[in-house]
């Protein structure tokens, strides 16, 4: 019993870490008034970059940093389109979702002789807690990735910045009433650029943790829908860091259920089990969210002087 619980906990935390990083990115971007539906694409490119840099440099940490940069670079595109060009943010996000994975696969084939799967990284991200030396006890299966800790820290820092600092005050105001911020002499464009790029960096790191901590290589299925689940977590979490974190933990847990129940003890086909997170999301949205309170100006391009 204890054994299963510990395994479930490990898996929950492991799966929720990339989601959390991406979701917090989503929170920051949406709070500043820019819908970032391109998280999935940014995660993909981050995942590939992490795997490639990790493989060639033998350093998982360097890989993770570059993953963040790659995500940030894609986010810059999204920012240019949605802030400077006042393009439709959903369309731009969809474009990012096409470019990100396309570019990731292209680079994979470029670096690894036409293969859509990269070679495994020599060194994964270290474990924060690892009890594998307690062989024979239930604790042997319990471990916590460093990415889990990283995700938790990002939640704490984001919460602090959003609610306790002047930048947070401004970001929250941006998503509600950008003109108010503008008339007070704070640049809406610059602030939104910063938020969108940070969101991309976090999504990229989130993708990187998938290839550097969860699995150890990039493949076409490494990032399959996590970005969208993270997006759902943002909504489910009511655009708040802790809320989004809780939502990600829940999604991580439902993933753990899939793994745990899929070991053959219960006679449910794995395909049906795999649906659980998605069905759960829809039900959660029905029950808890409804017409919830998105930042009022989210998704609306800001134009100086327009009323």
């Amino acid at each position: 019993m204890l054994n299963s619980l510990l395994i479930a906990l490990s898996i929950t935390l492991m799966y929720s870490a990339p989601l959390t990083l991406a979701a917090i990115g989503g929170v920051i971007s949406e709070r500043s008034g820019v819908v970032n539906i391109g998280i999935e694409g940014m995660m993909s490119l981050g995942a590939l970059t992490g795997a490639v840099v990790g493989y060639f440099s033998h350093s998982a940490w360097l890989g993770l940093m570059c993953a963040g940069l790659a995500g940030g670079a894609l986010a810059l595109l999204h920012a240019i389109a949605s802030i400077s060009f006042r393009a439709d943010q959903t369309v731009s996000g969809i474009a990012i979702n096409l470019i990100g994975p396309g570019f990731a696969m292209f680079l994979s084939r470029y670096f690894f002789e036409g293969a859509s799967v990269t070679y495994p990284v020599p060194e994964k991200l270290p474990k924060f807690i690892n009890f594998s030396y307690l062989k024979g006890t239930p604790f042997a299966n319990f471990n916590i990735d460093v990415s889990v800790v990283l995700a938790f820290m990002v939640v704490v820092v984001t919460w602090f910045v959003l609610y306790k600092t002047k930048w947070g005050l401004r970001i929250r105001a941006l998503g509600e009433h950008p003109a108010a911020v503008d008339t007070l002499g704070v640049s809406v464009y610059r602030s939104r650029y910063a938020c969108v790029i940070i969101s991309g960096i976090l999504a990229g790191i989130g993708g990187g943790t998938v290839t550097l901590a969860v699995i150890s290589q990039f493949n076409p299925m490494a990032i399959s829908g996590q970005g969208f689940i993270a997006l759902a977590a943002v909504i489910f979490g009511k655009w708040k860091p802790w809320g989004a974190y809780a939502a990600c933990l829940l999604f991580g847990f439902s993933q753990a259920l899939v793994v745990m129940l899929g070991d053959g003890t219960v006679r449910i086909p794995s395909t049906i089990l795999s649906m659980i997170p998605y069905v759960l999301t829809i039900f959660i949205l029905i029950i808890f969210v409804g017409r919830s309170s998105a930042p009022r100006a989210s998704g609306v391009p800001y134009e100086k002087g327009a009323r």
Binding site: T165, K166, L169, R170, E176, H177, A180, V181, L184, G185
Partner: peptide, 25 residues
Amino acid sequence: MLVDKFTVLQNIVLGNETTNFFGVL
């Protein structure tokens, strides 16, 4: 030009905040 969800004080200081260190309000 007021943010509905903010308090009066938050609206007044927005953009011209008094802070301690590292931008902490």
